[in-house]
């Protein structure tokens, strides 16, 4: 299985490769990718350096253009596809069929990956994209169980990539408008979720309030661990009860499932977190590298080492990790 690492900067890209990533994914500093955050992402010069660096090591660079071209602005997204091709990216990760038409016709030999934002949850959706655009790989939504992943893997010839570690989206990706409902900006239209420009923290007497465009997303007692106010992870009131009404701020951790994913034929494990630091990338990738190597070497004797878990837990959002939808304790 290939290990695919996030890179929000050249420093993170280098850290990922040094730690043993087989491929890194990155995007431009604009709305063409789903991590369009202040001070993050790559200039074309940086991508050039990054591609050279990765290719010198025999690794790959995947270019994410995984938002939806907005009305009247198709050319910005096409320019990004042109840039990916011209800068020597090994594949582009796309979500929008209209953009796939362009990429497939203009660059028939370029490898196309269907982004998780493309929300292909079953084999018909994936096969349609293969028949139409010859996609080579699909990143599966984080809503699927192991059983469902196994079935999809059997039913398509497209390579399967799944998330192995990072923050969890509890909603089907690419079809969530919660962020624009609260702030005007969403993953689909701006490449952001719960954007920083709408976030205000205020602390009075140790009580920390996290607001998004004025809407109270969460309130923390003095000393209580906080989380970024991603709105689906806030605490709200439903019928008089105050709680995480949608989802707890946990991280996905598929460390324990690696041999099973490999046995099903999953081709790549993806780590979430282009917005996180090179320190995060280096430690998470090094840990998963060691685990994947162990799973490849002797799958039957594979056990999750406590130091791997400790290393990953240290970087987890909300300081707890789960196997997420993979085993669905709530189903």
């Amino acid at each position: 299985m290939e290990l695919v690492a996030p890179a929000g900067s050249l420093a993170a890209l280098k850290a990922a490769l040094e730690a043993g990533a087989d491929a890194v994914y990155l995007g431009l500093k604009n709305a063409t990718n789903a991590r369009n955050f202040a001070g993050l992402n790559f200039s074309e010069t940086d991508i050039c350096t990054g591609v050279e660096h990765a290719h010198a090591l025999g690794r790959k660079v995947l270019f994410a253009i995984n938002t939806f071209p907005q009305p009247g602005r198709t050319q910005e997204w096409r320019n990004a596809v042109d840039a990916a091709h011209d800068l020597g990216a090994d594949a582009v990760i796309l979500a929008d069929p209209g953009l796939m038409v362009y990429a497939h016709e203009r660059y028939p030999r370029m490898r196309l990956h269907l982004s998780v934002q493309g929300s292909a949850t079953h084999a018909d959706a994936i096969e349609l994209m293969r028949e139409q655009f010859n996609i080579q790989r699909v990143v599966l939504p984080r809503v699927l169980t192991l059983q469902e992943i196994e079935r999809v893997t059997r039913q398509t010839q497209v390579e399967i990539e799944v998330f192995g570690f990072g923050s969890l989206c509890v909603m089907a990706e690419g079809r969530c408008l919660l962020s624009s409902f609260a702030t005007g900006d969403s993953p689909n239209n701006k490449g952001v979720c719960s954007p920083a420009h709408a976030v205000r923290w205020s602390e009075i007497g140790g009580q920390l309030d996290a607001r998004l465009n004025g809407i109270l997303i969460d309130r923390y007692a003095p000393g209580e661990p906080a989380a970024y106010p991603t709105l689906c992870k806030g605490r709200f009131e439903v019928e008089g009860r105050f709680d995480h009404a949608l989802e707890e701020p946990t991280s996905l951790n598929a460390l324990g499932l690696l041999p099973r994913l490999a046995a099903m034929g999953v081709k790549a494990i993806k780590v979430e977190g282009r917005q996180r630091s090179p320190a995060y990338v280096a430690q998470v990738i090094a840990t998963l590298r060691a685990a994947i190597n162990a799973a490849n070497l002797a799958p039957a004797r594979y056990v999750v080492r406590p130091d791997w878990q400790a290393s990953l837990s240290r970087h987890a959002e909300g300081s707890q990790t789960t196997q997420g939808a993979f085993d669905r304790p709530w189903k």
Binding site: S9, A38, A196, H197, E224
Partner: peptide, 26 residues
């Protein structure tokens, strides 16, 4: 990580904070 553990406090312009963080990270 520091922020989530309440060891780093940020107030004011959150987007500027993110910019500084990403700049330091990079």
């Amino acid at each position: 990580t520091l922020f989530f553990q309440r060891r780093l406090k940020i107030s004011g312009d959150t987007e500027l904070g993110l910019m500084v963080k990403n700049w330091l990270d990079a």
